[in-house]
Simulated assay, not measured.
Amino acid sequence: MARISKDQVLNACIEGIRNSFKEYLQWSSDEWLWRAPEYLLTVNIAKRLNKIPNEAKFITLEDNVRKTLKDANAKIKGKIANKARPNGRFDIVFWWGKGTPRGVIEVKNAVFRKDHIQEDLDRIYSILKKRF
């Protein structure tokens, strides 16, 4: 079974966004995607990730941060920073078939400036900068 590449994940995300745009245009009588709810993108991205040809994967939506880190067997030195929102949720968790997370995806809609997503970037960075 071939490994899933970063490009496959990225392309699945982009295709999920494209599908969301097409659907929302049709459903809303030509409204643009930035007016759609974020969960439309989240669901369509997850659907496309699921179509990547490899059975050694699964996807969960709105999974708890603390639980995901525990499932990753993350041995975090010190307390999980409040900035990481340990009781919060990741929009999408992409899992290895053996049951450990391989990555998280945060979905944002209508981003016009970096400061619109800075809080999410800080949250993910605060988790990644810890030594696991």
Score class of each variant (00 low, 15 high):
Met1Ala: 11
Met1Cys: 04
Met1Lys: 03
Ala2Glu: 14
Ala2Gly: 05
Arg3His: 07
Arg3Gly: 02
Ile4Tyr: 07
Ile4Asn: 04
Ser5Asp: 04
Asp7Ala: 13
Gln8Trp: 08
Gln8Asn: 12
Val9Thr: 07
Leu10Glu: 11
Asn11Gln: 11
Ala12Gly: 07
Cys13Asn: 07
Cys13Gln: 07
Ile14His: 07
Ile14Leu: 14
Glu15His: 12
Gly16His: 02
Ile17Asn: 04
Asn19Thr: 10
Ser20Ile: 02
Phe21Glu: 15
Lys22Gly: 11
Glu23Asp: 08
Glu23Phe: 10
Tyr24Ser: 10
Gln26His: 07
Gln26Asn: 06
Gln26Ile: 12
Trp27Met: 05
Asp30Asn: 14
Glu31Ile: 08
Glu31Pro: 03
Trp32Thr: 13
Trp32Met: 07
Leu33Ile: 06
Leu33Phe: 00
Trp34Ala: 06
Trp34Val: 11
Arg35Asp: 00
Ala36Leu: 04
Ala36Asp: 03
Glu38Ser: 11
Tyr39Cys: 09
Leu40His: 05
Thr42Asn: 10
Thr42Ala: 09
Val43Ala: 14
Asn44Phe: 05
Ile45Arg: 00
Ala46Tyr: 05
Ala46Leu: 08
Lys47Gln: 12
Lys47Ile: 12
Lys47Asn: 15
Asn50Cys: 06
Asn50Gly: 08
Lys51Pro: 00
Lys51Asp: 14
Pro53Glu: 13
Asn54Ala: 11
Glu55Tyr: 02
Glu55Arg: 09
Glu55Leu: 10
Glu55Pro: 00
Lys57Val: 09
Thr60Ser: 15
Thr60His: 06
Leu61Met: 13
Asp63Leu: 05
Asp63Arg: 02
Asn64Trp: 08
Asn64Glu: 08
Asn64Lys: 05
Asn64Arg: 03
Asn64Asp: 11
Val65Gly: 08
Val65Lys: 00
Arg66Ile: 03
Lys67Asn: 14
Lys67Cys: 05
Thr68Glu: 06
Leu69Gln: 08
Ala72Thr: 04
Asn73Tyr: 15
Ala74Asn: 03
Ile76Val: 09
Ala81Lys: 10
Asn82Leu: 04
Ala84Cys: 06
Arg85Asp: 13
Pro86Tyr: 05
Pro86Arg: 01
Pro86Met: 02
Asn87Gln: 11
Arg89Gln: 04
Arg89Asn: 07
Asp91Met: 10
Ile92Ser: 07
Ile92His: 04
Phe94Val: 10
Trp95Ala: 12
Trp95Cys: 14
Lys98Thr: 06
Lys98His: 03
Gly99Cys: 13
Pro101Gln: 10
Pro101Ile: 13
Arg102Thr: 12
Gly103Ile: 05
Gly103Arg: 08
Val104Thr: 14
Ile105Val: 13
Asn109Ser: 09
Asn109Tyr: 00
Ala110Leu: 04
Ala110Gly: 09
Ala110Phe: 05
Val111Leu: 03
Val111Gly: 01
Phe112Val: 12
Phe112Ser: 10
Arg113Cys: 03
Asp115Tyr: 10
Asp115Thr: 00
Ile117Asp: 01
Ile117Arg: 02
Gln118His: 01
Gln118Phe: 01
Glu119Ser: 11
Glu119Cys: 00
Asp120Trp: 01
Asp120Gln: 08
Asp120Leu: 02
Leu121Cys: 09
Asp122Ile: 00
Ile124Asn: 14
Ile124Val: 15
Ile124Tyr: 04
Tyr125Gly: 12
Ile127Lys: 06
Leu128Pro: 00
Lys129Tyr: 15
Lys129Gly: 00
Lys130Tyr: 01
Lys130Val: 04
Arg131Ile: 15
Arg131His: 11
Phe132Trp: 15
